[in-house]
Computed example of a mutant assay.
Amino acid sequence: MFNIGDFARLGRVSVRMLRHYDSIGLLRPAAVDPHTGYRYYRADQLRRLNRVIALKELGLTLEQVRAIVDDAVDVAELRGMLRLRRSQLEAQLAADTARLAAVEARLRTIESEGQMNTQDVVLKEIAPVRVAELTAVADSYQSTDIGPVIQPLYPELFRRLAAAGVTPTGPGIAWYEPAGTDGGEAVVVHAGVQVTADPSTAGDFAVVDLPGVRAAATIVHQGPMDDVEQSMQVLARWIEENGYRTDGFAREVYLDYCADEPEKGITELQLAVRRS
């Protein structure tokens, strides 16, 4: 048998933790010296310790852990529980990473407020264009909600176009509209690319004519779309200063889309405007 210190090192836990587990009846020592009070453990008790630690990492309370290990949960069940928890943690990590990126982007927007230049805004007419598209719904127009929805649409769209023998004739164009009339924040995300295909030849994608815009305030955004708020706010200032109104939904024309190096991307933002 092993004394408590040796057993703690073998199990990669602290002595204090083992003493606590003993006090609550979760992992009793195999023997206790009646004269010294020293605790001793057997090697096969590491199996129970492993299960206790694994279940604790799942977020269970020690009382819940004891109930499970006392019911002798088998390896397959434990593996399934751990895989589920791993998936949950991965999803949480992805969400936290996205939130951190959004915070950093907003900080960059704040830091650049004094450097925004409305002279880069151009008012122009946008011609109609035919596009092949796929659509999906995002919870809101926030970048953190739009990004995960639109990003997988383009690879899938290009895959379907290639399968149908349709060749894009121009850049990708994304646009947005409310998902319903109930006043909610959900938006329909349109991921499109210019084509000359006949609508009747479309298969598992749609071919639509995107209408022209009589007057659009436009600006060329350089860099990742995570930082698009900076350019959007330049447009907002220009629109207000020049007496226009807009619904706030920008058309995005990906003049130079760099999936692997988003910081090199070039996107024209187009906001339809009208006089106040």
Rank of each mutant, 00 (worst) to 15 (best):
residue 170 G to D: 09
residue 228 V to A: 11
residue 18 L to A: 08
residue 124 K to V: 05
residue 122 V to I: 15
residue 98 A to C: 05
residue 123 L to Q: 03
residue 9 R to S: 06
residue 149 V to E: 02
residue 209 D to L: 11
residue 190 H to S: 09
residue 108 R to P: 00
residue 23 S to H: 09
residue 166 V to Q: 03
residue 184 G to M: 13
residue 215 A to P: 02
residue 68 I to N: 08
residue 268 E to N: 01
residue 66 R to D: 01
residue 91 A to T: 07
residue 252 E to N: 10
residue 139 D to M: 13
residue 218 T to V: 08
residue 214 R to F: 03
residue 186 A to Y: 12
residue 129 V to R: 03
residue 28 R to S: 11
residue 35 H to V: 14
residue 37 G to W: 09
residue 254 Y to Q: 06
residue 68 I to F: 13
residue 209 D to Q: 08
residue 75 V to E: 15
residue 111 E to I: 02
residue 274 R to M: 15
residue 168 P to E: 12
residue 69 V to N: 00
residue 237 R to S: 10
residue 217 A to W: 10
residue 195 V to P: 01
residue 250 A to C: 03
residue 89 L to V: 12
residue 31 A to C: 02
residue 105 A to K: 04
residue 154 Y to A: 13
residue 104 E to R: 12
residue 153 L to N: 06
residue 167 T to Y: 00
residue 193 V to Q: 08
residue 229 E to D: 05
residue 46 L to Y: 14
residue 55 L to H: 03
residue 51 R to S: 14
residue 137 V to I: 14
residue 98 A to G: 06
residue 160 R to P: 00
residue 55 L to D: 04
residue 152 P to A: 10
residue 104 E to C: 03
residue 239 I to G: 05
residue 212 G to R: 10
residue 19 R to Q: 12
residue 164 A to W: 07
residue 231 S to V: 08
residue 97 T to S: 13
residue 16 R to T: 13
residue 68 I to D: 07
residue 236 A to T: 10
residue 105 A to V: 03
residue 23 S to I: 11
residue 245 R to V: 15
residue 138 A to L: 01
residue 2 F to I: 05
residue 86 R to Q: 14
residue 69 V to Y: 01
residue 170 G to V: 09
residue 211 P to W: 06
residue 158 F to G: 00
residue 271 L to F: 11
residue 129 V to Q: 04
residue 64 Q to H: 11
residue 95 A to L: 14
residue 4 I to Q: 05
residue 22 D to M: 05
residue 195 V to N: 09
residue 183 G to W: 13
residue 203 G to L: 15
residue 252 E to A: 04
residue 263 E to A: 15
residue 87 S to H: 14
residue 121 V to E: 02
residue 109 T to F: 13
residue 32 V to Q: 00
residue 64 Q to V: 07
residue 31 A to G: 01
residue 10 L to P: 01
residue 183 G to P: 02
residue 155 P to M: 07
residue 219 I to L: 15
residue 271 L to D: 09
residue 147 G to W: 12
